[in-house]
Structures are given as structure tokens and as C-alpha cells.
Design a protein around this nucleic acid. Structure first.
Length: 546
RNA sequence: GGCCCCAUCGUCUAGUGGUUAGGACACCGGCCUUUCACGCCGGCAACACGGGUUCGAAUCCCGUUGGGGUCACCA
């Protein structure tokens, strides 16, 4: 038998007025892989663009327990990213159930049809017997093709095998000549020899069905028109086409996406190789950033999922979902030679499968960071505050419902910070604005260089303190005018006082604009910190003298 | 190993026979500046290799090399 799928390719999809339906089918593994997100995003975009539906189907198996626990992080991840599904878990729809484990009867019915049509057969071989044939073929350096020696196509044959005490699985009776042809929407025409295909098992002795059968049946049931999935599945496509055609289904259109590769390599990005990726400087920086945020929050990250390969990581440290989406969109797809910024609407409008690149794309943490930065720059003050408040609360620096005074303070702070705060967790770099009662921790080097070393630092701070006490209105512009006049009266350069002042009131060598910093801190805090600095400097000098 | 896929700056990519091979990120200079960041200006940097086809190849063909995927009673 020769099956040529090309004429049927995408028949369902091509039918006029047929709604486009795409799907993403995660296994409940407890985490959402960044590569999976990209596949889902492409499916989602394609469906939205065509006014169709995006479906989430859960490829679980019946032996898995605790489905909910393993599924929730995945669903939450998609929700956070705004990749919503029209049908699936927690949504329902006309084609449910959306869990493979609940669809067994459908698979069994399909197997029965295949058997009846002679396109599958009961096979009474044992795993060892098939393995022996495989080994034999390998020894002779020939291609392994199952002998079908334990195939039972008649009831009599079956009874004979059963009399021997054998049990049976169901195998596909795959064609052994001809070719399977289909058009891949990303890669163009594909052609595979049927003779290279095995008689794949589709049902175990205990009656449970295997993935490929389930997959094809589900896609048919869910009226999936476009199967957009990772390249790993390309080689599986012929057998799925065989199953679909054997069952009389119209074929969906296929599109195989290149995988997301490791930073700086072409290997598939894997959750398991965190240690290896950490050696990549950019990846390491990203991970370290995450660890820093966790430390500041006093949290112990889950070693299993706190990983930049997993989408939870980004949510936990304060990335914006739009940045992730935009970055992932450009990982393997481009519109033209310059457009990089896409709103959600633009993504939907412009996405197309024919501009998906064919080769794998490495995950580049530095570029993701750049998208995050750009996206953060678009936020208005309220949104920026919103982005940070969660972290302030988790750090215990503000109440769950901050007072309006506090919100105002936070807003001014974020304004002063400007683009220094790119990621939500960045706000945690500024405890000096929140833990105002605690004594400052001075950066040793800065303290030495700006306070202790210059002979004029202490006297200047001291006399500037008098000025600050007298300032009528403790706001940035007033403070600036005041400092300028102070600088003039002292006949010094502004740098001679301002660096010392910064260390004195924040403990740090670098920070926001000086006057905004003073204003936000407020007079009492500023005066107290100058006093403390003068005191601490005195002590330091005395102890180093002795 | 069989089958299949892929190949442009470090990375993401544009490019479908004629371009000084374009952009972005990163990196390196400079400017701005109270520091840092931003911003601005500038710079470094690529067609894996070898054969064809052609007046002319990053672009088309063949081969080589390299990388990857897949070959389950996993999903």
C-alpha cells in the first residue's frame, strides 16, 4: 500500500469557513519550559490571527497521580503570560474532556476500527522476542523490520498464541513500500520511506493506548486544523498520518518548529542542565540575579523549578510577561530586518508560519534582559509602582496595603530611580529608603574614598548639615538651589560635597539624583544619617590611629 | 549506525543571482553628567569548506565538514 498524504494535506484546514483550531498539549510535569511556551505562543498567535481557537489538552497518563499539583504551575504560567485557552482545563468546551486519561474509550474504539480494517493487528510477541530480532538485525547490519511472526490476523491464530499463554498488544500494520509525503508549513515538502517505519505498538496488553494513537484521535476529536509543534515530532509525523488516514480522518496541516537551543550552542535547551548553563556568563548573571532577589526576600528557592529555563523564574523575580512574549516571538521568527517591538495586537496581526526560521535558535539571556528593559520603560508610574509593591511587601518593607503616603513615597522613589529599576525585584536594591530606622551599612570602599580620605569631607558635611536644617522647603529643587549656593560660598566644586553626602545618607557610592534622594528620605532621616556618619567616621579614625 | 533536519557577525536575525552583506542584543571607545543608569555619537564583528551552473553567487545544484533530531509496550 502506498499512502500519499500530499493531496490530503491540510484538507480540513483549507476548507472554506473552517475555523482554525490549534492546540498545545503539555504533560503535567510541574513546570513550564521556556521552549514549550514558545510553541504555545506560536499556536496561540496563529489561532488568534485567524479568529480561531487555541486549545489546551493535557497529555497525562492514567498512572500519574497528583495531576492537579503537576498541572497548576503550567496553567498559572500560561495565565501569567496572557496565553489564554478557549478550551481546556478549567475552561471546558464542547469537545471535552481535555485530559487524555479521561478519553480512553475513544482510543479503544479507534483501535477496534483499525483492527477491523486490517490496518492494525494483534501481536503476541514478547518484548524479548522483538528485542532479539532487533539485535539480530543489528548484528547483520541490516535494517530492523519486525518479522510479524507473532502477528495474529485471524481468531484461530490468536487462539493458538493464547493457548501458549501469550498475551497481545496491538501494532500498526505499517506499509512497507512507497513513501509518505506531506507539506510542512515551515519546512516545505517532506518525504519519508514507509519501509523505514516500524509496526508501532498502539495498545498495550492491559488495554491502555499509546501516545501517537491518542494524539491523532484527540486532534481529530478536537477538530484541530493546524498541528504546530516542535521539530522532535517531525519524524513521528508519518506514523501519525498513517493512523489518521487509516481512521479516515482529514489531515491537519503540520508545522514543525525548530527547538530552542542552549545559550551559545545548538543543543536543545533542557531543564536538567542548569549547572552547565550557569557557566555561560549571561545565563549565570540572570540566575544570580534571581538568587539575589530570593535572598533579599528571605526565600528558599525551589531547587527544582527555580531555573531560567522555566517560566516561573521570570514571574518570581519580576519580569514582565510582555517582555517574555516579545523575546520568544523573535526566537525563531522575524517580521523583517528591523522590527523588534511588538504589542500583543501586533504579534497577532503579523505572525506567520512561513517566516518561522528553520534552524534552532539559542536562548540568549542578555537579549531577553534587553526586552525586559524596553518593556519596563513603557510602563506608566502607576504600573511601575504596581510592579514593585509586591516585592516590597514580600521583603517586609511595606504593609500589604500601603498607606497613600507610602504609595506616594514609593512612586516618587521609582520616578527618581528611572530606568535603574528594570525588573520588579530591582527595587530590593534600595533598602536604605525603607529601613530608615536601621543604621546604614556603608560600602567600605566608598566610605574610605569619599568620607575618610578627603580632608574636607567631614567639615563640609558638618557645615552643610547646618544648611539642611535651615532649608525652608525640603524638596528637590529647593535643595538643589541650596546646595549650589553652599558650594559657591565654600568655593568648592560640587563633587567635593556631593559624593560624601551620598555616602553619608545612603551608604553607597552610586544612586539616584542626589536631590531627589534627599527629598524622599526626608529631613529627619537625612540629618540623623549625617550625624551617624560623622560619628562613625570619628570612631573609624580613632581606631585606626591607635 | 539508518532515516530526517539545519548551517550569515559571540547571540537573535534581514537577505530568495548584481547590496560598501542591513538591523538588534552583547562588547569596546567617546560625549553628556554630582555617581550610576539612560541617552547620543562612533567602533569591532559573519556568508562553514570544496566543487560546479552563471557575465555575476550568501542566494541555485552536488559533495564534504560540522551541529541537531529521531529510531520505545515514554509523552
Amino acid at each position: 500500500m502506498t499512502l500519499s498524504a500530499n493531496k490530503c494535506q491540510g484538507a480540513r484546514a483549507k476548507r472554506k469557513h473552517m475555523t482554525v483550531r490549534t492546540r498545545f498539549a503539555p504533560s503535567p510535569t510541574g513546570y513550564l519550559h521556556i521552549g514549550g511556551v514558545r510553541s504555545a505562543l506560536f499556536n496561540w498567535l496563529f489561532a488568534k490571527q485567524h479568529g480561531g481557537q487555541f486549545i489546551l489538552r493535557i497529555d497525562d497518563t492514567d498512572q500519574q497521580r497528583n495531576i492537579e499539583a503537576a498541572l497548576n504551575p503550567i496553567l498559572e504560567g500560561f495565565r501569567w503570560l496572557g496565553i489564554d485557552w478557549d478550551e481546556g482545563p478549567q475552561v471546558d468546551g464542547p469537545h471535552g474532556p481535555y485530559y487524555q486519561s479521561q478519553r480512553r474509550s475513544k482510543y479503544e474504539a479507534a483501535v477496534a476500527i483499525l483492527l477491523e480494517r486490517g490496518l492494525a493487528y494483534r501481536d503476541f510477541s514478547t518484548a524479548e522476542e522483538v528485542q532479539a530480532e532487533r539485535a539480530e538485525a543489528e548484528k547483520n547490519q541490516t535494517e530492523f523490520i519486525y518479522s510479524r511472526r507473532w502477528m495474529a490476523e485471524s481468531d484461530e491464530a490468536a487462539q493458538r498464541f493464547e493457548a501458549e499463554g501469550r498475551s497481545s498488544v496491538v501494532r500498526l500494520k505499517m506499509p512497507r513500500e512507497g513513501q509518505c509525503e506531506f507539506v510542512d508549513l515551515v519546512r516545505g515538502p517532506m518525504r519519508f520511506d514507509w519501509s523505514k517505519e516500524q509496526d508501532h505498538v498502539i495498545q498495550r496488553a492491559d488495554g491502555t493506548c499509546l501516545y501517537h494513537l491518542a494524539n491523532v484521535v484527540d486532534d481529530e476529536d478536537l477538530k484541530i486544523t493546524h498541528v504546530i509543534r516542535a521539530i522532535e515530532h517531525l519524524a513521528n509525523t508519518p506514523r501519525q498520518i498513517f493512523i489518521a488516514q487509516a481512521l479516515g480522518y482529514e489531515l491537519p496541516a503540520y508545522a514543525h518548529l525548530p527547538f530552542v537551543a542552549e545559550p551559545g550552542s545548538k543543543n536543545k535547551l533542557s531543564k536538567r542542565k542548569l549547572d552547565k548553563y550557569l557557566k555561560n556568563p549571561d545565563f549565570g548573571t540572570l540566575y544570580e540575579y534571581g538568587m539575589k532577589v530570593m535572598r533579599r526576600l528571605g526565600k528558599e528557592p525551589d531547587a527544582d523549578t527555580f531555573n531560567p529555563v522555566i517560566v516561573d523564574f521570570y514571574r518570581d523575580v519580576g519580569f514582565l510577561p510582555e517582555a517574555i512574549n516579545n523575546y520568544l516571538l523573535l526566537l525563531g521568527w522575524s517580521l523583517d530586518d528591523k522590527t523588534e517591538d511588538f504589542t500583543r495586537e501586533e504579534m497577532i496581526q503579523y505572525f506567520s508560519l512561513d517566516r518561522v526560521i528553520k534552524s534552532p535558535a539559542s536562548f540568549d539571556p542578555a537579549k531577553l534582559l534587553a526586552f525586559q528593559q524596553r518593556q519596563a520603560g513603557r510602563l506608566n508610574p502607576e504600573e511601575r509602582t504596581e510592579q514593585c509593591v509586591r516585592f516590597l511587601f514580600e521583603a517586609g518593607w511595606v504593609e500589604a496595603m500601603p498607606s497613600s503616603d507610602m504609595i506616594d513615597r514609593i512612586t516618587r522613589l521609582i520616578q527618581a530611580a528611572g530606568d535603574r529599576i528594570k525588573i520588579g525585584g530591582d527595587i530590593l536594591d534600595y533598602p536604605e529608603f525603607f529601613e530608615t530606622e536601621k543604621p546604614l551599612e556603608y560600602e567600605a570602599k566608598a566610605f574610605q574614598k569619599r568620607i575618610l580620605k578627603p580632608a574636607e569631607a567631614l567639615p563640609l558635611l558638618s557645615s552643610y548639615r547646618e544648611r539642611l536644617e535651615a532649608v525652608s522647603d525640603f524638596n528637590a529643587s529647593e535643595l538643589e538651589a541650596n546646595l549650589k549656593s553652599f558650594v559657591e560660598s565654600q568655593e568648592i566644586k560640587i563633587g567635593q560635597i556631593i559624593h560624601a553626602l551620598r555616602v553619608a545618607v545612603t551608604g553607597k557610592a552610586v544612586g539616584f539624583g542626589m536631590f531627589e534622594t534627599l527629598e524622599i528620605l526626608g529631613r529627619p532621616c537625612v540629618l540623623r544619617r549625617i550625624d551617624e556618619t560623622l560619628q562613625y567616621a570619628k570612631e573609624s579614625m580613632e581606631s585606626s590611629d591607635s
